[in-house]
Simulated assay, not measured.
Amino acid sequence: MTTTPARQRLRDLLDRRELIVAPGVFDGISAQLTKRTGHVAAYMTGAGVAASGFGLPDIGLVTATEMADRVRMIADALGDIPLIADADTGYGAPMNVVRTVRAYDVAGVAAIQLEDQVFPKRCGHLPDKQVVDVAVFEQTLAAALDARSDDNLLIVARTDARAPLGLDAAIERANRYAQAGADVIFVEAPQDTSEIERIGREVDAPLLINLVLGGMTPLESAARLEEWGYAIAIHPSNLLMRATFGMLQSLCELNASDPAAHLPTSPADFFNLVGMAEWLDLDIRYARKDPSWA
């Protein structure tokens, strides 16, 4: 397949070795506004799609088909602006990953992000995450790399190992994934500046960092991130949180109530606005059922 202008543009931006700042988009208007305000790239946030498109928390409830539909619409709205698109765990075994990558490829994304969490995954800035074995995720990467029709379609490999296994394990995984062929490496949720710097020094690949409002990672400046060797900084929550604040304020003005009771201060607070507590209660309830009852 001939490469697209958006994919070539992302390659060219990476070659400049200047930090690419990618706002988080989740619907048509956020994509259009990102393009019209002069941003050079965008990031389709899975958390934003889950919340805005389906009223769901980012805990693995949105399907591959639902995500692929949203990818097509956002990529079309962005036009030649490169879209880095969240594809969670790839939605299953390697053959499922192949189908996911093919769908995102046809939609015209410039990069696909895949992660090494156990399914169902959780937002990277929530507790209690689990990761698969390194070899299992290397199979995911192999499937993704083989499935793409264009080498300019970048594969972003994300590891969530920092929280459950520690930073050493996360860095080891990051380098393994780079050696397996991933184009960009994403170590999720470093917890302080020293960890951000260490990842920059010790991971031998173009690096992506995730800057979530109220999340676990310090919100460092673009200048410092570039100095430490990062290639891409995604800001998945900025547009979503401001839109949420605006909606809460408007709704509470209509019935003369106080928006302060609803305003989130962390990712967990935000996801509780779309039912996370109730969904996790269901997960706990059915996890305790005796399968012999069937």
Rank of each mutant, 00 (worst) to 15 (best):
H39G: 02
H235Y: 10
C252E: 02
D86L: 11
T37L: 14
W279G: 02
W293G: 04
D192N: 15
A50M: 03
R224G: 00
P267G: 06
M95G: 00
T34P: 02
G46Q: 06
D88N: 01
F186V: 04
K129D: 00
A51P: 01
V212P: 08
V98C: 13
V40L: 14
N210Y: 06
M44E: 08
S257C: 07
T193S: 12
R201E: 13
D168V: 06
M73C: 04
A147F: 00
L251K: 09
T65Y: 05
E226T: 04
A261S: 12
A111R: 00
R242L: 13
V136F: 03
A22S: 08
R99W: 14
A256N: 13
V97K: 10
E202T: 03
A182N: 00
Q8T: 13
C123K: 02
E278Y: 06
E18H: 11
N238C: 14
A233D: 01
T45G: 07
E220N: 11
A182G: 13
V71L: 10
R224C: 02
R224L: 15
T45L: 01
I196K: 04
A268I: 07
T217L: 04
S266T: 14
A223S: 13
I155P: 00
L10G: 05
P5H: 02
E202R: 02
N152D: 15
L165T: 01
L153H: 03
D80H: 06
G181N: 14
V25D: 03
D133E: 15
D12C: 01
D258I: 03
A178P: 07
M67G: 06
A51L: 08
E172W: 14
W279E: 13
I284N: 10
A157R: 08
V212I: 15
R11S: 14
G38R: 04
N210C: 12
G79T: 05
A189C: 10
I171S: 04
S221H: 03
I171P: 07
I20E: 09
D168H: 08
V156I: 15
A85T: 07
I59M: 06
A68E: 05
G246V: 06
A243V: 02
I196M: 14
E66K: 00
T3E: 08
F54R: 04
E197P: 01
A51D: 10
R162C: 13
T89C: 01
A223Y: 07
D27K: 04
R36I: 03
I20M: 02
